[in-house]
């Protein structure tokens, strides 16, 4: 309990310190992602506009490439039309990229002993063979998710062999699309509401209540278990009405209360530690 409290405090301090520092520098994000400073800054500025209600019409996203070397890499799942690194509009899978990804990696590496890439990540499709080298994946806006047959087969094998996926940033009827697409991937899988007692909420931080107001409304956590048995491994987790990525993304801006970012990081850290141990 003491360790969890100390780690929580550390996150809060880290988030606050990062926020102040970056604000003082006029939100120069080059310190966050030095390797891809230009793209990161552009996307970050786009994100900030989005947070204020606007969206850029056209975006350039560096797909990134963290060659597997044993370390944990944040893998953002890409779906939809073929992507060449440039989009007329920010595609839904790229929401909060890259600042959310890299902020999360930084927090994860500071808080835990997980060895991570810090400023590199991977954007992979579900049928990309490299996906198998990264057994934890993150998908944003699954309400817009579409699947080819190859992607469906690749994702099914990924989950059945031991992969873990986080669905984030969706609301309203977007859930119907997630359910429909997952039914194609795992026809027999059932979404099960998660209880705060589930180990995923206690793998690092002690999250004892899920009575949380999410980004879009009261948040709900559901999951898919191996063989539909809640005693077995959790293969997929969905944060309905919530947007952890958004909170990670702006954790260094001061636009969001520190507490919200703090809590969002706790969920993310727990997901990763759980998926690495279960």
């Amino acid at each position: 309990m003491l360790s969890a409290w100390r780690s929580g405090l550390a996150i809060a301090c880290l988030v606050a310190a990062t926020s102040v520092a970056l604000l003082a520098l006029g939100a120069d994000l080059s310190t966050v992602a030095s390797a891809k400073a230009e793209a990161v800054a552009e996307a970050a500025q786009d994100g900030m506009r989005r947070f204020g209600g606007g969206r850029r019409a056209a975006v350039a996203i560096d797909p990134g490439k963290a060659d597997y070397d044993g370390r944990f890499s944040f893998v953002r799942l890409r779906y939809g039309p073929t992507f060449d690194g440039y989009s007329r509009r920010e595609p839904p899978w790229a929401h909060d990229y890259p600042r959310a990804d890299f902020h999360f990696l930084k927090i994860l590496s500071e808080i835990t002993f997980v060895r991570t890439f810090i400023d590199e990540g991977n954007i992979l499709t579900l049928d990309d063979p490299d996906l198998s080298l990264f057994p934890i994946a993150y998908m944003s806006e699954p309400g817009f998710w579409t699947l080819s047959e190859e992607e469906m087969a690749g994702f099914r094998a990924y989950l059945q062999k031991g992969g873990f996926v986080i669905f984030d940033d969706f609301r309203d009827n977007h859930r119907a699309n997630l359910v429909a697409q997952m039914r194609r991937v795992l026809p027999d899988a059932r979404w099960v509401p998660l209880d705060p007692a589930h180990p995923v909420f206690h793998s690092f931080f002690e999250i004892n209540s899920l009575d949380i107001m999410g980004y879009y409304g009261p948040a709900e956590w559901t999951g898919i278990f191996e063989d539909n048995d809640p005693a077995k491994r959790l293969m997929a987790i969905a944060n309905y009405n919530h947007d952890l990525g958004e909170m990670w993304e702006f954790s260094d801006t001061g636009y969001l209360p520190v507490d919200l970012s703090n809590e969002a990081y706790k969920f993310g850290v727990n997901y990763v530690v759980y998926a690495m141990t279960h």
Binding site: T112, F113, V114, R115, P135, A275, M276, T277, H278
Partner: peptide, 13 residues
């Protein structure tokens, strides 16, 4: 195990 990593998960599994 001294650090969270996938080896533990898959070995136990």
């Amino acid at each position: 195990e001294g650090e969270p990593r996938f080896e533990l998960k898959f070995l136990r599994r």
